[in-house]
């Protein structure tokens, strides 16, 4: 039995011996133990195909879209094993932002923000809706840009604005943890920069787990970093230690650009 590589006080999310297989006998993610710190940004890095997205998607059970995937072990969110909960409830506690901005094309900006409530059949009063929309759009720094066009379609925004709208949509449900799957890989450097600044603000209120294959991004914004390789968690440490003094040879090679 492996132990956690780093001791995290009061973790919000705990992975205990998590393995994920796409087909029987072949694990894409192997026996991962990790605790994730509250109100911090944790980055998951690694070369393509190392299982980082797979691991992230297990945390809000997006895998259930594909019937053959099996998750073993325990994932505890706020002390509760999410693998034993109703997936709809899990996904409300663990919001997700995807690689490409995906606002709902038939909905206005306003409706996109409160889409989580609408889709879950939770009715809100007009003032509650307005409060949530203003707060979430302000949170993602979009309010001043769109406050006069709230009833336009979300798809008219630029890519970076769309991605911030998607973050606002995830924040509206007040998730315990925000999972981000390479959220800036489809964006230009300026939009990327804005999202990174935004994440640094958001960690006051939310816990963020971000998958990225952009090492400098991880170095810039994250407090803790994980390095995964071939489904294994090779190294998990504070970002500073990881980038200045990696313990594992593979981490060192990856960070110095020898493979990836």
């Amino acid at each position: 039995m492996k132990e956690e590589m780093i001791n995290i006080q009061d973790p919000i999310l705990q992975l205990k011996d998590v393995s994920i297989s796409y087909s029987p006998g072949k694990n894409a993610v192997k026996n991962i133990y990790a605790d994730i710190a509250k109100n911090k940004i944790t980055a998951i890095m690694g070369p393509s195909g190392c299982g980082k997205s797979t691991l992230l998607r297990a945390i809000n059970r997006m895998h259930e879209l594909y019937p053959d995937i099996k998750i073993m072990g325990e994932i505890l969110l706020d002390g509760k094993n999410i693998l034993k909960m109703n997936p709809m409830e899990v996904r409300r506690m663990a919001g997700m932002v995807f690689q490409r901005p995906n606002p709902f094309p038939t909905m206005s900006i306003f409706d996109n923000v409160i889409a989580g409530y609408k889709l879950n059949g939770i009715s809100l009063s007009k003032s509650e809706k307005e409060e949530i929309v203003e707060r979430c759009l302000t949170n993602v720094g979009l309010w001043n840009e769109v406050k006069d066009s709230l009833y336009k379609k979300g798809t008219f925004l630029s890519g970076g604005q769309q991605q911030r709208l998607c973050i606002a949509r995830a924040l509206a449900l007040k998730p315990d943890v925000l999972l981000m799957d390479e959220p800036t890989s489809a964006l230009d450097p300026i939009a990327t920069n804005r999202i990174e600044e935004l994440l640094l603000d958001l960690k006051q209120e939310f816990t963020i787990v971000i998958v990225t294959h952009n090492m400098s991004q991880a170095a810039r914004i994250s407090d803790y970093s994980m390095f995964m390789y071939l489904g294994e968690l090779v190294e998990y440490d504070t970002t500073q230690t990881m980038f200045t003094n990696p313990k594992d040879k593979r981490t060192n090679e990856y960070l110095s650009g020898q493979f990836g």
Partner: peptide
């Protein structure tokens, strides 16, 4: 497929994703 994922990731049921997101789109 990202449309369906986006809906499910908000905790929506499969039915409401189909009826409120996929069909209108």
């Amino acid at each position: 497929g990202s449309l369906k994922e986006a809906g499910l990731a908000l905790g929506a049921s499969y039915t409401s994703v189909v009826l409120k997101i996929l069909l209108p789109s």
